[in-house]
Design a protein around this nucleic acid. Structure first.
Lengths: 180, 180
DNA sequence: AACAACCAGTTGCAAATCGCAATCGGAGGA
DNA sequence: TCCTCCGATTGCGATTTGCAACTGGTTGTT
């Protein structure tokens, strides 16, 4: 698998890699929800991605080196998907894109609290988050996938999300967003 | 025109708006190349977008409020497309995306020099650039389009691009990238 | 041993979108 | 009067999307 390379512009090439409806959403779920198995990405997604599209995107992202795939020793049929260094370095991109979306698009309060914290935390927090992500995705992918080891930064973001979700659940919407 | 709204997540909504092959590339050309007319966007693009797709994207971006369209007083058939405040606020997103692309994708030296300068300049430079963009796209769109007024930051980026292009032109590729 | 639940996908199919090439009617300039 | 330029539009085949149903196999429970 290879990209088209219509030009050597960084923005163009980035859009050839990430310029579709689902790739960055999948990376977001792996990064912030620690979704590491196909089923988790399929069923615990707020947006409801179709299974064939998820399969195609995962295959493509693996081929492009943005995620890696390995067997799960706890279950012969399971695979563990992990972020790689290039996708972990998307943290600043996702942080600024989230900050932009929060300002200009009709976001929900609960789902945007993490974007707010990440923006307020600034580059220092992003670096700490990336260090955590390297531990649970690259250094210890299996323990990271099964929850044996976690991420302090991610725990903080998730706690804030849960708290906001609990506080807003019965007051502003009828839906039931997935717990991370 | 409206987006799908599969969830209220900032990243999801941002990808519903910008998650396609061309939208951000068009905004990049308007922002860094000051392309303000349909023909400029069509013919002075390194990637060679098709005219029907350009027309559809421009219509969609106008409907979404990311760009605006007005008559060009100098020519009854011309239209001037301008960035709006939401798209000007994409500068930090584009800066970090460009920095990521420059590190992880096969960029060309000339086309990535602006991404490098923007990364090195940091948030202070982004703010200065956004201030310039507001002047030539929002406050004075006509003078900004015809070049009567310019942008110091943009002039610096463009000069660096031209210099790098001249220095690398006959040494590392056969193509002839468009001058901005 | 039987059975239900779960695993990572695959298949079929209709609808929408993409990308290219050719073209359009009108306007400006020589 | 041409010729060029203007912002698009049209036709059309190839590709992609999204949904639903399904596959072959494994695991845990009874």
């Amino acid at each position: 698998m290879d990209i088209e390379r219509r030009s050597g512009c960084p923005i163009n090439l980035a859009m050839e890699v990430l310029g579709d409806r689902w790739s960055l959403v999948i990376i977001r779920d792996m990064m912030f929800g620690n979704r590491r198995h196909f089923r988790e990405l399929l069923t615990r997604s707020d947006e409801g991605i179709a299974s064939n599209i998820l399969a195609a995107r995962l295959k493509r992202l693996v081929a492009l080196g943005l995620i890696s795939k390995q067997d799960d020793p706890s279950h012969s049929q399971k695979s563990i998907y992990s972020l790689t260094e290039p996708s972990i370095q998307l943290v600043p991109v996702i942080a600024s894109l989230g900050a932009w979306g929060r300002r200009h698009l009709p976001v929900s309060e609960a789902l945007s609290i993490r974007a707010r914290l990440l923006e307020e935390g600034g580059p220092a927090m992003w670096e700490a988050f990336m260090t955590d992500l390297r531990a649970i995705h690259i250094t210890h992918p299996i323990d990271g996938a099964n929850g044996t080891i976690g991420s302090p930064v991610l725990d903080g973001l998730t706690a804030a999300y849960r708290a906001t979700l609990a506080a807003t659940r019965d007051r502003d919407d009828g839906g039931t967003p997935q717990m991370p």
